[in-house]
Simulated scan of single mutants.
Amino acid sequence: MATEAEKWMNLPQDHMVRSTKLPWYHQDFEYKLKPKFRKLLEEWSGIAPEEVVPHIQRVRDVAWHVFPWPCIGEFWFIEQGLLRHPDYSNILKRITTTTPPPKFLDLGTCLGQDVRTLTHDGASPSTLYGADILPGFRDAGYALFRDSDRLDPSHFITGDIFSDVDDLGKTRGTWDIIHIAMFLHIFALPEQQAVSRNIMKLLKPVPGSTIIGTQTGSLDAGELTLKPPFCEPGEHKTIYRQNKDTMKELFEKAADAAGLKVNVWTEYDEDEARERAEGRKAKGDEWEKKERFFAGDKERRIFFRVDVL
């Protein structure tokens, strides 16, 4: 029986989720384009200012061909999730001032925007790595950032978080800092529990090791039943949305299973919730449905940090 990862990597070209008529395949994204990301493309990637928007549009279609995640259709890969995290400056300082520098893994790196943000802000590429289950995203990232001459391909690992024998699994116990953004929520609760345990195994089991990240959650934790095209017709599939308290518990239990003592901090990204509410107020519910397809009154992004004691 094919694993979920194998299904993703072998998705037929005519599958319904590849349709550009889906509501999360957007044409307009400039409201998401922040000055910091524009500056990254202009300074790090050498994109002319007038070319930034069409360049992003072209690369989105390349990434959509790799795999049509809704976040690709909605251009969320231009949002620098790590930069938004309250602990970004501390992580950057740690990477740029510690000798030897800590090994940093961006897990679920997609097009590698957070790795590029760190390099643009002064981190050495030699200590930064990204990992994704879909190898095509590495080349899509090179197309977006035009830096294949500066970031070694060996620093982009193809791996399945559920495997302990692939290239990612072979790095268990070697990472000082692991960043994970916006992928736990694609799984059901038992899978999230397995993922959190395996992330803990990737971390160096020593004081000072850190997991940091952001995930989509809800004020009310609970199970959601998916409908096509998020699953095959007739298939019963669920995902789980954590709240900040259950997210804390998730990682505490994962650490306990690994025999590690940790401090876990979680908090909602209230700025994002406020921005969404202001957009809804200014442009109406139809804006919410069109431009923020998966959002709702109870949805929240959850910041978290796990420190090994």
Rank of each mutant, 00 (worst) to 15 (best):
S45G: 11
Q27A: 10
E51F: 03
P102H: 06
L203I: 06
R138N: 09
W76R: 15
V165I: 10
K281P: 00
T171E: 05
D160F: 07
R18C: 08
H26E: 14
Y31I: 11
S45P: 09
R146N: 14
R274N: 12
D14E: 14
L22Q: 14
A188S: 15
S218C: 12
R241S: 08
R274T: 15
D132F: 05
T216V: 11
C231R: 12
R241T: 00
K253A: 12
N10P: 02
G222T: 06
K34N: 10
P153A: 11
P207M: 08
D139T: 13
R276D: 12
D152P: 02
G296Q: 03
T246G: 07
K281R: 14
M1K: 09
D121G: 04
D149Q: 14
E223L: 05
R276T: 11
Y31D: 15
P86C: 07
P205A: 06
S154N: 13
L134S: 04
F29Y: 13
V59A: 04
E74C: 10
I47Q: 01
G208P: 08
W44Q: 14
I95C: 03
T246S: 15
I186M: 06
R58L: 04
P153G: 09
I161R: 00
I177G: 05
C110S: 02
N198C: 02
M247Q: 11
F183T: 04
L22I: 10
H155P: 06
Y31W: 15
E42C: 08
A181R: 09
D14H: 14
I157E: 03
F67M: 07
D166M: 07
D164S: 14
A254M: 02
D132P: 04
D160N: 15
G169A: 07
H179E: 08
F251V: 02
M9D: 12
G208R: 06
I178C: 02
G279Q: 12
F251S: 03
E30H: 04
S148V: 01
I47H: 00
S126F: 01
L40W: 10
P228W: 05
G217T: 00
D297M: 05
P233L: 03
T119V: 15
L107I: 03
F104I: 02
D14Q: 14
E4I: 09
W265E: 14
P68E: 06
C71Q: 11
Y142T: 06
S126A: 13
V53G: 01
W64V: 00
R197V: 10
K34S: 13
P12M: 04
T225Y: 02
F162C: 07
W8R: 14
M200G: 05
P190R: 12
N90F: 06
Q242N: 15
I180Q: 14
S163E: 05
L260Y: 02
L33F: 11
S19H: 09
T119S: 07
I157D: 02
K253D: 12
E275D: 15
T266Q: 06
H236Y: 11
R18K: 13
D164T: 14
K237G: 01
T158M: 06
K261N: 12
K244F: 00
T238G: 02
K244G: 01
V165C: 07
A2E: 12
D121V: 01
G73F: 01
R84F: 06
L203M: 10
S148Y: 01
K201W: 00
